[in-house]
Each structure stands twice: as structure tokens, then as C-alpha cells.
Design a binder for these strands. Structure first.
Lengths: 205, 205, 205, 205
DNA sequence: TGATAAACGAGACGGTACGTCGAGTCTTAGG
DNA sequence: CCTAAGACTCGACGTACCGTCTCGTTTATCA
């Protein structure tokens, strides 16, 4: 919604028309040609915009894409959080299956992978990427696990941030490296194994 | 060791001198300027080689780098495997701490991150990358866990491949995304939590 | 004066500074290294200009050189025409001697020969070359011969265009093929012999 | 028949088969793609010959072409000379018409123009070109004019070499510059005008 | 309600690197 | 030891984009 950076230019005079056209053109083009072949010139041409208008408001094509992607997903409701039926294993399996499906959708995949890759290469972008797209996603898992803790299904002494890493990193890693299928079989087994690590210790009282 | 691809040219006539110079120049340059600013022209110039000689034998700068990196690490002994003192927790902590230190070494980090990023963007390269650099590394973990199974420290019914993913993915993910420090504190906690998931079930014989 | 061709780019935005620098650099370089070793890259470097700026406005290095040469000689006064002392033999000898001296000047010779050669190989360029550099030169001879006709020194029925070819071609041919010296002896004999062909027929009035 | 230059290699061991294939390939290719796009590599490939075999025996592609062309035309009989019916005007018109037709033949034109152009640019080649292809041609004209002198049709004091230049240069120049058609109309007028210059002076006895 | 200053579209500019082509040299195998 | 084959270094090609820099032309405050 807001530009990644804005130094001198007068934001109030900014052309909303151009901003939208640029973001949309970016999303379209990254899907068509891929991130490495995405060029500022092509974005400008597709958007019917001068190159300077892009350079004026964004520092790099990655920043454009991050804005574009944020705009698309920003209304996705992190508010409602994860489902909570009381059965944490079932809830996590459901959510992870849905996430796996989403990551298999090409329309989502191309720009998201582009951003993940760009972030891996560029520390500055990585901060933005993590703060705006990754952390909000992790947070809802932490909340669900905390509910599980309160319900006595999860060891109360556990570091929940690390627990979420344990659950989501294998998933993310598989996807990013294409080192294996994101099947429901996989996500189910993953949830089961992670929950064994989270279970309260029997001896504990 | 072998070129990534080799279609028409006659491999037997290949200049070993040029091949070595190219791989070395790549490693040097990627450390000096980083992957995105690494150019074929600079590699050729540094190696004292015609550009065509690079284009003749490699399809992309990523492929050059993969060969270069493979050549450097290929004699690293996967044979000896992980240490096995009988205490699996201690052994894993030791190894993961060492790995964390390695990944904090800039000389290793630059080219390896470059490859990981390029692989994330390019499926063809990803196959090579995973097969030549990732899987041999995973395999030694699987072997150590199998020894733990046989020693009764790990549930005999577990999928050890998935177990290794559970252990290494959070580590890889943190490193790639720079989403947290690769401290010994972190690796120790990670090993502990994963071992809770691997422990034999109490009810089991 | 004007570019050889101009299709899409906006001529009104053209940089006069770059245009001049390119033309000057071409002339300098063709003198230093000769036409076959003249490269667009060297012109661009010498002129402090991007290669694209040359490719944008000229189709070939020959076209650049043609513009460069035209610019240098264009203010050479064709207006004043040839001298007319009343003695046509003397006038022609004087002019041809001067022309021979000019063609013996290395600074003139290198680019002009380059153009003549390029024009001989390339019909499109030949048109431009002939129209812009050769024909204006021929025209002044035709005018002088016409004056000679009116003065009764030249046969009134003659084709003056052919007469000029008769006079200048042997000269041009010797120069282009280096098939003999461009001495004053040669030009004088040439004028004399041609004038025998142009003399009015005795039987006529 | 003989190579343009031959320094070190042992001529007696030379492969006649390769030599012929190279000359033929040159002639074919210059017709197909023109001289500037004619490459040594293409000649070698077409001739089924290693590049080195060309470099061993010829200093440049122009030299190859000169040999190739000489081979083709060398048996053209300069011996028989020009026709001599006693009517010099008629004889010259006939010959020049035939020459014009020859120069309009594309199969002859392409390689000959290539050589003429290359010779104009390269003084060393020019010597060879003039000595082997031009001068023999001029000589037969000189002989015919001499016969005309002896028959009293031509001024006995004239410099016949210059006379031949007067006759042939306009023709060559038109052809090389494409500055006009090589029509029979043109050649006839040319012969007539030149003969006026050559005619014996009336007052002379 | 103009004027006036900005952001805008367009695109030429100086550069860098691309990937290709051919030059001329060098090495290997074969006759 | 000439030859066919072709890999090598080198350098130029013509193209694509980069990011910067004018150009007029909207456009939207403020005088």
C-alpha cells in the first residue's frame, strides 16, 4: 500500500493510476517471463508509464514486486487465525494441506518464489520480505500452538517460535528447493512428527 | 568434476588448463563482487580465457559456479560419516555446531548462497545442486540416525529421511532467509527438540 | 548534413554534441588505422558515446564516414565554379593539377578512398556517395565546358556529361587502382587529349 | 595456378585436391553471399578442408579469390587479340559491346567486383590484381591501336597507353560506381568520342 | 481561477554485459 | 609432414537494459 521507500518526491501528488498499473504489470510479467527476465523497461512499457516514474518510487524491481505481492495478499485475513476445533493435530493437518495447495498454484507460485529468491540474495529486501509476508504468517501458528499449550496438549515449557520453525521450515525448504513433493501425505507425516516433539513429557507433573 | 552439460564439443580435446582457471576465477570473483555482479566477461578475463571457452562448456554462470564449488568440496570426506560416540544428542549437537560455524564463514557462504539462490530460481540447476551438494550431506545424517535406531535410541518405525529434514530444514531456512542467528544455542535447542520427536515411544517394547 | 537514414528515433531530441563527436572521431580514426580496421566500438570510445547512439542514427560505419566527410567538405564552394580565363585548356589543366594535389594529400585520401571502396561494394551507399560527393563535383565541369561551347572552343553538338566522364574517369581510375602516378604531367596530357575530342569539327561552320 | 605467396611450406607436397576445392568453394561462396560476408571458415567448411590449409597457402581471402578468378579466366585467350577488320571504329565498338555484356553477367560480376574493391583498399593486392587481370587486358587494346596507327587511322605521335586509359576508364568507372548503365549506346558514343581524340591532325603530313 | 511547479509519458543518452561470430594460432590424429 | 578437425585467445559485432537526463504535457494545489 505504501511505497517501500520515499525520499524526496511529494507523495500527495503521486499518480494512483500509474502506481496501480505498475504493480499490475509487474505481477503479470513475472508470471509470463519469470523474475530474472523481468525488466524495468518491460514493466514501464506494459504499464504505459515512463521509466522514471518507477525509479522515482521504488529502488529496485524486487521492491516493486514486493509491493505488488503485498497488495494482492494484504487483505488475506491473518486476523481470523487458524481454526481451533480442539484437536490440534487435525487443525494443523488441515491448514498445512491448504497451504500446500496454495503453493502448488502457479499464479501464486511465480511471484512468491521470485520474492523468496530475491530476498535470499539481498539482505535489505529480506528484511522487508520477512516482516511483511513471512512473520504475519508465522504469528498465527504461534497463537494456535499457545492455545494448544493452554489446553494441555503441548508442553508448556516449549519455545513456540522454534516449534513453528520446526513445523514450517521443512515445508518451505521442500518448496524452495523442489526437493520433494508437497503432498498431503508429506504434510500429514510432518505434523505428526512435530507433534511428538511438542507433546508434554509424560513424567512431568 | 565433469561439466554440467556437454553436447557437441569434443571433450577429449578440452583444455584442462582453461577449465581449472575458469573454476578458480569464478570462486574468487563470486567472493569479491557477489553473485549478481559476477559476469562471464570478468571470469574470462580473470582466467585469461576467451568467453567462448566458457560458453562452449557451461550453459550459465550458475553451472560454472556449481562445478567450481563441487570441485572444492568434492574431496571433503563424506565417507567417514558423522561421529558416533554412542550419545546421539551429543554427536548431533557437535556436528550442527560445526556446520553453523562453516556457514558463518564468508569464504564458504558467498558461493554457496549464490548456488542456493540460483537453484531456487532454476529447476534444472536445482536438480544438479541437490544431487551433488545436498543429498550426499543428508545421507550421512541418515546413516547416523540409523545407528541410533539400532542402538535403541530412536523409534525404529520412523521415516529417517523425514527426520533429517526436520533437523536440517530449520537450520537451512534460517541461514537462507537470515531469519535468525545460527548460534550454538539455536542448534542445541533444535537438536533437543527434534530428538523428542524421534525418541522411541514409551509404550513400545 | 542530415543523417543518412532516420526511421523511428525522434530527430528533434538528437544530441548535437554526440553527433559532432562521432563524426570527428570517425575522421580521426580512419586516418589513424584505416577503414578496414575502423570499428564502431573505437568510434564510440573516442567520441565518449554509447555504441547505441551510433547504431540509432547510422546503419553502418560507411554511413557515418559519409556524413563525416560530407560535413567536412560541404562548405567547399561548388558555387564559385571553375576558373574561366577564356583559355579552356589552361583552366582545365590548372584545376586538374589542383585536384591531383588534393588526392595526394593523406588526410583527404584515407577517408575518401574508404568511402569510394565502400560505395563500390554497397549499392545503397553508392547512391548516397555519388549524389552527395561526386555529382556536385562533375556539375562544375559541365558548366565550364558549356561556357567553352558558347565561346566556340568546343563542339556545340557534344554530350557534355560524357565529355566530363572522359576527362575525369582516367584520373579517378588511376587514383583508385593506383595504376599510375597522379602527376601534373599526366593531368596535362589528359587534358590535351580530351580537348582534341571536344574540338569543333573543322568542316563545321 | 601458382599461389599468391608461398613462404615456408613444401609446395611439392601440396594437395592439388584441396587447392582446387578451396578455389571452387571461394567462387561459389562469393557469388552466394558477396565478398564482405565471405569468410575463411565458410570456405574451409564448403571445401571440406581445415582452416590451416588455407592459411598455409594464402595470406588473405582476397588472395584466394584472386587465384580462383585467375584460374577461371586464365585460358581466356589474350593471344588472339582484338579483331582487326581494318575499320577501327567498328572493331572497338564490337569489342566494347561484348565487354559490357560480360560485365553485366552476374556470375562474372560478383567475384570480379569483389576483387576490384579489395584491390582498391589494399595496395599489395592491387599490384597483383593489376598485373594479372588488368594489364593483359589493356595490352591487347594497345596492340590494336598500334595497328590503327600503322594504318594511318590514328595519330602516330599519340601515347597509346594514355589512349587506352581514355577509352576504358570511363567504362570501368561507370561499372564500379554504378554511375550509369553499361549500354551499347554508351559504349558506342564512348568509342566515337575517343576516336576524335585519336584522329590524325588534319594539318599533319 | 489562473499560474506554476510537480509528477508524468516518452525516450535519447553513456554505459556494461550479453551471447555470437570469425580471425588467426595451436594441438591432436591419421595417412 | 601435410592434412582435417576443431579448441583455443582475442576482439568486434549488434542487442538489451541499466539508471540518468532532458523534453514537452498534464494535473492539482495555492496565490
Amino acid at each position: 500500500m505504501s511505497p517501500t521507500t520515499a525520499k524526496s518526491p511529494d507523495v500527495s501528488r503521486r499518480s494512483e493510476r500509474s502506481r496501480k498499473a505498475i504493480l499490475q504489470a509487474s505481477m503479470e510479467l513475472v508470471g509470463e517471463v519469470g523474475y530474472p527476465k523481468l525488466t524495468i523497461e518491460a514493466i514501464a512499457a506494459r504499464a504505459g508509464v515512463g521509466k522514471q516514474t518507477i525509479y522515482r518510487w521504488w529502488p529496485s524491481k524486487a521492491a516493486v514486486l514486493l509491493d505488488a505481492f503485498t497488495e494482492v495478499v494484504h487483505d488475506q485475513d491473518y486476523e481470523s487465525g487458524l481454526p481451533d476445533t480442539g484437536d490440534i493435530e487435525d487443525d494443523l493437518k488441515t491448514v498445512l494441506r491448504a497451504t500446500a495447495d496454495e503453493f502448488s498454484d502457479a499464479a501464486f507460485e511465480a511471484p512468491y518464489r521470485a520474492l523468496a529468491v530475491a530476498a535470499a540474495a539481498d539482505p535489505e529486501l529480506a528484511d522487508q520480505f520477512v516482516a511483511r509476508l513471512r512473520e504475519p504468517g508465522l504469528e498465527v501458528y504461534v497463537r494456535r500452538l499457545r492455545a494448544g499449550q493452554e489446553a494441555g496438549q503441548i508442553d508448556p515449557d516449549l519455545d513456540l517460535d522454534l516449534a513453528v520453525e520446526l513445523l514450517l521450515s521443512p515445508f518451505q525448504q521442500r518448496w524452495l528447493n523442489r526437493s520433494g513433493p508437497l503432498s498431503h501425505e508429506f504434510t500429514d507425516r510432518l505434523v505428526e512428527m512435530v507433534l511428538r516433539a511438542l507433546a508434554p513429557r509424560e513424567g512431568a507433573r
